[in-house]
C-alpha cells in the first residue's frame, strides 16, 4: 500500500516537473526575444534623428517608482505562493489581489508615460530610438497586461474550485512568469532609463 502510494506520488511529481520544465522553456524563449529587443535598443538608442534623447524625455523618478511597484508586486506574489503551499485559500486570494493592484498601478504609470510622450509628439515613428524604445518597453507592458489577465482568471478558478494540487501548479507557473517579468524590467530600468542619465 505504501509502495503504491509512493509510486503515485512520484508519478504526479514527475508530471509536475515536466510541466514546470515546459513552462521554463517557454520563459527562456521569451527571454531570448527580449534579448533581441535589447540588442536593437542598444544599437539604435543614439539615433534620435535630431529629436529629443532619452535624457530629455524620461523622468527617472517615475521609472524608479515603477520599479518599486513591480518589485513589491513580485514580493506579494511570492507571499501568495507560500500561502498556496500551505493551502490557505483566503490568503492566496488576498496576496494575489495585492499583486494585481500593484501590477495595475505599474501599468497605468507606464501608459501615462507613453501617453505623455505621444502627446508631446514623440511617437514611435519619430526616430529609430523611439521605435526601439516603444517596442522594448511596450513588449514588456503587453506581457504585464497578459499576466494581469491570467491572474484574474486563476483567481476566479481558485475562488470557484479551491486549491487542488494542479491549481497550485498553475499558480506556481503564474508566479514564475511574474518574477520573470520583474527581472526583465530591472534591465529595462537599467539600460533604458538609468543609462540615459549617465
Amino acid at each position: 500500500m505504501a509502495d503504491t502510494m509512493t509510486t503515485e506520488m512520484t508519478h504526479e511529481e514527475a508530471a509536475n516537473n515536466r510541466a514546470m520544465f515546459g513552462f521554463w522553456v517557454y520563459l527562456m524563449t521569451d527571454l531570448l526575444m527580449f534579448g533581441v529587443l535589447f540588442a536593437v535598443f542598444a544599437v539604435l538608442h543614439n539615433n534620435t534623428a535630431g529629436g529629443s534623447s532619452g535624457r530629455e524625455l524620461f523622468k527617472l523618478k517615475l521609472a524608479l517608482i515603477e520599479t518599486f511597484l513591480l518589485l513589491t508586486s513580485s514580493f506579494a506574489c511570492g507571499l501568495a505562493m507560500i500561502a498556496a503551499r500551505q493551502g490557505n485559500k483566503n490568503q492566496v486570494l488576498a496576496w494575489f489581489t495585492v499583486t494585481f493592484v500593484l501590477g495595475v498601478a505599474f501599468l497605468s504609470l507606464e501608459l501615462t508615460e507613453f501617453g505623455q510622450l505621444i502627446h508631446d509628439g514623440n511617437t514611435p515613428s519619430s526616430s529609430a530610438f523611439l521605435s526601439s524604445f516603444f517596442t522594448l518597453v511596450g513588449a514588456h507592458g503587453l506581457h504585464i497586461t497578459l499576466g494581469l489577465l491570467w491572474m484574474v482568471i486563476v483567481m476566479a478558478y481558485v475562488l470557484a474550485r479551491g486549491l487542488s494540487s494542479s491549481m497550485v501548479r498553475k499558480l506556481t507557473m503564474l508566479s514564475l512568469y511574474w518574477h520573470f517579468l520583474d527581472i526583465v524590467w530591472i534591465f529595462i530600468f537599467t539600460i533604458v532609463y538609468l543609462r540615459a542619465f549617465i
Partner: peptide, 27 residues
C-alpha cells in the same frame, strides 16, 4: 520545497537595495 518567508523577505530587501543604489549613483 522552495520559497520560505525568510527567503522572500531577504530577496525583496536585497532587490530594493540593488535598485536604490544604482539610482543614487546616477542621480
Amino acid at each position: 520545497e522552495p520559497g520560505t518567508l525568510e527567503s522572500y523577505i531577504i530577496g525583496f530587501c536585497l532587490s530594493l537595495l540593488l535598485t536604490a543604489l544604482p539610482y543614487r549613483l546616477v542621480v
